[in-house]
Design a binder for these strands. Structure first.
Lengths: 156, 156
DNA sequence: TATATTATCGGGAGTGATTTCCACTAATTA
DNA sequence: TAATTAGTGGAAATCACTCCCGATAATATA
């Protein structure tokens, strides 16, 4: 097993340290939990996932760490309308795997899609340039979501 | 002053009644509050705006009414990341005035923009068709937001 | 118009995700 | 190695929002 801690070799260590944050066991565990799934985890989900190995990492630390990771630009925070925030790694060791979301308003299922993304991103880039000029706004991120009914919900 | 209540002439009455909902004084007040501003009001904001004239409309009714209006398709519910939901009329007496949002991550200011919207909407339409085919998803709505720093925050 | 029906109301008490507080611990710095 | 200070944890607090239920009022019906 390759070294997990204290060796400074993880892809994200630099990004965290560069911003003046420290690398700790709890943060390691939380990023690992986010890396190990395609799901959109809530703070509670993460708590459940790491509690066996890290019984001393409580909800407070998880919320704090997630905020920090959002600030550091490593994590994106989503609201799908179910009352709890969801978190997703913005990029992994191999770089970004950009996608957008379809949100089923009936069963709350979330579908990630990457089709059409290229065309969307191209337009977004053009729009971003235009908006920056027009409003003097420096755009750093975007959110695109579609709402509707998934195939299963349409059937019933 | 044109009649305000009980006459059934308001542009939204039909839309509400068609869905089996009733037209009430509280609902009237809430829609009026949303109509009378460009802001993105929270439930609490609405409470403050109507409490003078409608001291008997409580928070519960406001939340319930907003949910109903979202269901009826008259109102859009947003999350700008400050912990409270924000509501916006989807259309007014004169029809829809579609726009998207720029969210300043520093001062939380929200800028509505309508520039570039046409091009965006055209792409969205194409994407929607593609996504529907690919995932069997029936898209009913979309959300586009840009995050970054507004001109004022960039200055400091 | 009067009456019946039932959606809606109000507000106090919950709920549950997230934050705060503060004494303690541990990652970094000197 | 000690000093510094970011980070931790867990209980209590916060606060947006929901539930409950007896009372009220908008519509449908006679």
């Amino acid at each position: 097993m390759p070294c997990q801690r204290r060796c400074g070799h993880q892809w994200w260590h630099g990004k965290v340290r560069d911003r003046g944050f420290r690398v700790t066991a709890g943060r390691e565990a939380i990023i690992e939990a986010l890396s190990s799934t395609q799901d959109h985890l809530s703070a509670e989900d993460i708590y459940g996932k790491i509690h066996d190995r890290h019984p001393n990492v409580g909800p407070t630390t998880i919320y704090r760490t997630l905020d920090m990771l959002v600030q550091a630009g490593l994590v994106f925070k989503f609201d799908f309308g179910d009352g709890k925030a969801r978190y997703e790694l913005r990029e992994g060791p191999k770089g970004a795997h950009h996608h957008h979301h379809l949100v089923c308003t009936s069963c709350k299922r979330i579908i990630d899609y990457t089709d059409f993304i290229d065309e969307e991103l191209e337009l977004l880039k053009r729009t971003e340039v235009g908006l920056s000029k027009r409003y003097g706004f420096r755009i750093e991120d975007h959110l695109i979501q579609f709402y509707g009914l998934c195939a299963e919900c349409l059937r019933s």
